[in-house]
């Protein structure tokens, strides 16, 4: 299928991009890699009046390192993370996650900011970056603001972004040397949409621990009690809370779906504790 006709502008800089976004109102879509938007355009599920291309903006490709985090421009591609072309503040988690997104040909073009803005619950970045407590830096003509990823997604394809806002960068905290992570994704075929994602980060030095159950129907779910038990008592204590936590978080899910989600989280925890 071919998309419906739309206009196309390549923004020359960020100011131009947000100005175009503002002027076009709800009929415009920002596009960078377009690896999620493209299929929806071709299927005519999405019918924008204007595409604003920001893929080549150098300011969206920056990497800024500071002591406690790294700021990644929104238009960095998954493959750039996979190949280690940018530093990894998460001890390999980001690199591992990037390498498992869709297929190489998609990773070569799809971007980290685009994936977050699209807010598909099955997307890898959403769960992985929520697990490390990353935040998005957002810009509109009115100014900038920062939104924690745990507050960013309101539902499937629905974010806290206003119509005239765009993601400029993603701020990812540095995990300390003693930290460990686990990430397990279940999908029917390599590269397909995930059926379940478990993402776990344990960082004793920063007294940080988070357990994320992703690829649910809505925003990624934080399993808070489990994270607390995991931090205080280790794997056994955390896993003891797993089934109940999944049931509370997904009351309407079919038993098989709950089981998938529990397995993904369990395996992610297993990676953290080396089994």
């Amino acid at each position: 299928m071919k998309p419906v006709a739309f206009d196309y502008e390549r923004a020359g800089n960020l100011e131009e991009a947000v100005a175009l976004l503002r002027r076009a109102d709800a009929g415009a879509k920002l596009v960078s890699g377009g690896q999620s938007l493209g299929p929806m355009l071709n299927l005519r599920l999405v019918r924008p009046e204007l595409l604003i291309d920001v893929r080549r903006l150098q300011s969206l490709r920056r990497v800024e390192e500071s002591d406690d985090r790294i700021l990644f421009g929104a238009a960095l591609t998954h493959a750039e993370f996979e190949d280690g072309e940018v530093p990894d503040p998460t001890g390999g988690l980001m690199r591992h996650v990037a390498g498992g997104i869709a297929y190489r040909a998609v990773r070569n073009r799809g971007t980290i900011g685009g994936s977050l803005a699209h807010a598909d619950p099955a997307a890898d970045w959403l769960s992985a970056l929520t697990a490390v407590d990353a935040a998005v830096q957002v810009r509109s003509q009115a100014g900038e603001r920062v939104i924690c990823l745990s507050d960013f997604v309101l539902g499937a394809f629905t974010t806290a972004l206003a119509e005239d806002e765009m993601i400029e960068a993603v701020a990812v905290p540095r995990l300390s040397a003693a930290s460990a992570w686990g990430y397990h994704k279940i999908c029917r075929k390599a590269g397909e949409f995930a059926d379940a994602i478990g993402a776990v980060v344990v960082d004793p030095e920063r007294r940080y621990c988070r357990v994320v159950m992703g690829a649910v129907d809505g925003p990624p779910v934080l399993l808070e009690e489990m994270a607390e038990a995991l931090a205080a008592g280790g794997a056994e204590a955390g896993l003891a809370k797993l089934d109940a936590a999944v049931e509370v978080a997904l009351p309407e899910a079919a038993p098989a779906a709950r089981q998938l989600h529990a397995v993904a989280v369990r395996r992610a925890i297993g990676q953290v504790y080396g089994r």
């Binding site: 407590d133 460990a180 004793p204 940080y208 621990c209 934080l222 994270a227 953290v272 504790y273």
Partner: peptide, 19 residues
Amino acid sequence: RRAAGPATFERRSDGAPSK
């Protein structure tokens, strides 16, 4: 992978905003 896994600790209360 580390075989033993990270040490246990008391989680910072702001380590994960309760949502």
